[in-house]
Simulated assay, not measured.
Amino acid sequence: MDIQTRKLLPNESNAYREIRLECLKKYPNNFTSNYQEEKAKTKLFFQPFIEESNNNNFVIGAFHNSSLVGISGFKRHDNKKTEHRGLIIQVYVQPEYHGKHIGLLLIKSTLKEAFKINGIEQIEIDVIASNHNAESIYKKAGFEAYGIQKNFLKIENSYYDHKMMMIFKTSFNE
């Protein structure tokens, strides 16, 4: 299966919106955002960044036959004291493409692009602790866990812990 990854282009903002809403609807327990709240917004978090081709905040897309099948967002911290760090968020691969190593390809592509940014030294990623598949992918990409936040999400009467992971530029192997 031929999968291509690249930064989303300004005209792909709506394709991003569709797949982002899809992931929130299909996997509500794996993301902090809520489908109904996000759907009501005129623009989702990354849409303006995609539309302006922002270099510090972007989305990498995975494409199969020109269809967007996966996303991985990068957000650079914007405070002077933390701008050496960034965060990978909103990672998603459509279910029919699971098991084809697209998640790992997306993460590595995102890391490669993010570490090109002048001054980026470390990147964090978070995962709901019960999402073992995602955690396994992040470990394969080189991330190491550094902490757990208990009861990070509360959905109805269930709590979900949050595992925090990090990778340094010096340890990233493409």
Rank of each mutant, 00 (worst) to 15 (best):
residue 121 E to W: 12
residue 101 H to Y: 01
residue 157 N to H: 14
residue 92 Y to P: 03
residue 37 E to W: 00
residue 162 H to R: 15
residue 77 H to G: 07
residue 83 E to D: 10
residue 136 S to I: 00
residue 80 K to N: 10
residue 3 I to E: 07
residue 147 G to F: 15
residue 43 K to Y: 08
residue 26 K to R: 15
residue 40 A to C: 00
residue 149 Q to D: 15
residue 60 I to S: 00
residue 1 M to I: 13
residue 105 L to C: 06
residue 20 R to P: 00
residue 91 V to A: 08
residue 173 N to L: 13
residue 160 Y to G: 05
residue 31 F to K: 10
residue 92 Y to F: 12
residue 11 N to W: 07
residue 61 G to Y: 07
residue 120 I to V: 11
residue 14 N to H: 11
residue 50 I to H: 00
residue 55 N to A: 06
residue 156 E to A: 15
residue 21 L to I: 00
residue 128 I to L: 04
residue 69 V to Q: 09
residue 87 L to F: 14
residue 48 P to E: 09
residue 60 I to W: 03
residue 134 A to C: 09
residue 150 K to N: 15
residue 49 F to W: 14
residue 166 M to S: 07
residue 142 G to Q: 02
residue 31 F to G: 11
residue 23 C to L: 02
residue 34 N to R: 11
residue 80 K to F: 14
residue 10 P to L: 07
residue 104 L to D: 08
residue 82 T to A: 15
residue 6 R to N: 07
residue 139 K to V: 14
residue 155 I to W: 03
residue 16 Y to K: 08
residue 156 E to Y: 14
residue 5 T to R: 04
residue 168 F to C: 10
residue 93 V to Q: 02
residue 140 K to Q: 15
residue 24 L to I: 04
residue 55 N to D: 10
residue 150 K to F: 11
residue 46 F to L: 09
residue 55 N to P: 11
residue 78 D to P: 07
residue 69 V to D: 03
residue 119 G to M: 06
residue 39 K to H: 06
residue 62 A to N: 05
residue 48 P to T: 03
residue 147 G to E: 11
residue 96 E to M: 06
residue 32 T to Q: 08
residue 78 D to G: 15
residue 149 Q to S: 14
residue 103 G to C: 04
residue 120 I to M: 09
residue 70 G to W: 02
residue 118 N to P: 04
residue 34 N to C: 13
residue 78 D to K: 13
residue 136 S to P: 00
residue 105 L to H: 12
residue 32 T to N: 03
residue 69 V to F: 12
residue 153 L to M: 12
residue 48 P to A: 04
residue 113 E to M: 03
residue 154 K to M: 08
residue 124 E to S: 08
residue 37 E to Q: 09
residue 163 K to H: 01
residue 24 L to R: 04
residue 46 F to W: 14
residue 124 E to G: 05
residue 148 I to Y: 11
residue 13 S to R: 05
residue 17 R to H: 02
residue 93 V to M: 03
residue 75 K to L: 11
residue 7 K to L: 12
residue 5 T to D: 07
residue 11 N to C: 02
residue 53 S to D: 10
residue 31 F to I: 09
residue 91 V to L: 08
residue 13 S to Q: 15
residue 5 T to M: 08
residue 128 I to K: 14
residue 90 Q to C: 13
residue 101 H to L: 01
residue 14 N to W: 02
residue 123 I to D: 05
residue 68 L to M: 05
residue 160 Y to L: 05
residue 26 K to W: 03
residue 88 I to Q: 04
residue 8 L to F: 04
